[in-house]
C-alpha cells in the first residue's frame, strides 16, 4: 500500500496530511454529535442535546474548509492515481459526515420532545441496540480511514445489515403498537423518525467504508451485490 507522504514535494505531502487530519477531526466532532444525541435520546440527558446543534456549526464549517482544501490541491497539483482517489474520497467522506451530523441533530431534537413522554420507553431497548451498532460503525469507519484499512472497512460495511434488520423489527413493532394505541401516534412517529435517523447514520458509515476500499483498490464496490475483492494490494 502506498503511503500518502512519499511525494518528492514535501509541501504536497504536508497538504495531504493536513487534509487527512482535518477529515479525522471532523469525524471526531460528528462522533461526539451522534454520541450526545443518542445519550440524550436513550438516557434523557436533554441538557446535552443543545450541544449537538452547537457542534453542527463547527462540522459545517469544517466541511466547507475541507472542500476548499480539496479544490486547492486539485488546481495546484492535478492529483493522479491514488492521490486522485484519495482527494475524491475526502470530498465524499465529508459529505457523509456532514449528513450524519444532520441526522444527529434530528435525533437530539426528538430526544428533547420525547423526554417527558413515558409511552415511548418500551422501544428503547431496540433503539439502544441500533445505536450501539451505528456508533461502532462510525468509529470503526473513521479508524479504517485513518489507517486506510480496506479489509477491515469491508467488514465494517457489512455491519450495516444488522442495523437494517433491527430497524425492520422495530418498524413492525411500532406498526402493531400504532394499531393498538391510536392515542399515541405522535410519540410513536417520533420514535420512528429517530430509528430512521440512526439507520441513516449506519448507511453513511457504510458509504465511508466503501470509499476506503476505492482508495486502496481503485475499485468501486458501491451497489455491487456480494462484491468480493480478490487481489491483494
Amino acid at each position: 500500500m502506498l503511503n500518502i507522504g512519499q511525494h518528492i514535494s514535501q509541501e504536497y505531502n504536508d497538504e495531504l496530511e493536513d487534509l487527512r487530519n482535518q477529515v479525522l477531526s471532523m469525524g471526531g466532532l460528528v462522533e461526539q454529535q451522534f454520541s450526545d444525541a443518542s445519550n440524550a435520546l436513550l438516557n434523557g440527558t436533554i441538557n446535552i442535546a443543545q450541544r449537538v446543534t452547537e457542534l453542527d456549526y463547527q462540522v459545517n464549517a469544517m466541511e466547507v474548509a475541507i472542500d476548499e482544501g480539496c479544490a486547492q490541491i486539485i488546481a495546484k497539483r492535478q492529483p493522479t492515481a491514488i492521490d486522485l482517489r484519495n482527494i475524491f474520497t475526502v470530498i465524499k467522506v465529508v459529505t457523509d459526515l456532514e449528513r450524519m451530523g444532520d441526522e444527529s441533530e434530528k435525533i437530539a431534537k426528538f430526544a428533547s420532545e420525547l423526554s417527558a413522554d413515558t409511552n415511548s420507553m418500551g422501544f428503547y431497548k431496540n433503539l439502544k441496540h441500533m445505536t450501539f451498532i451505528a456508533k461502532k460503525m462510525l468509529t470503526d469507519a473513521l479508524d479504517c480511514y485513518a489507517r486506510l484499512d480496506a479489509k477491515k472497512a469491508l467488514e465494517v460495511s457489512n455491519m450495516d445489515a444488522e442495523i437494517d434488520a433491527e430497524f425492520e423489527i422495530l418498524n413492525r413493532l411500532l406498526s402493531t403498537y400504532l394499531l393498538e394505541d391510536t392515542k399515541n401516534i405522535e410519540s410513536i412517529l417520533k420514535v420512528t423518525w429517530c430509528a430512521r435517523s440512526i439507520e441513516r447514520v449506519g448507511d453513511h458509515a457504510k458509504n465511508i467504508c466503501e470509499y476506503i476500499v476505492y482508495v486502496v483498490y481503485g475499485k468501486d464496490i458501491r451497489h455491487v451485490i456480494d462484491g468480493k475483492l480478490q487481489d491483494d494490494k
Binding site: 502506498l2 512519499q6 511525494h7 518528492i8 514535494s9 504536497y12 492515481a81 491514488i82 492521490d83
Partner: peptide, 11 residues
C-alpha cells in the same frame, strides 16, 4: 507500483 510512483510524483 513504479507507474504509480512516477505519475503521482513519488520517490
Amino acid at each position: 507500483e513504479l507507474t504509480e510512483n512516477y505519475i503521482t510524483g513519488r520517490f
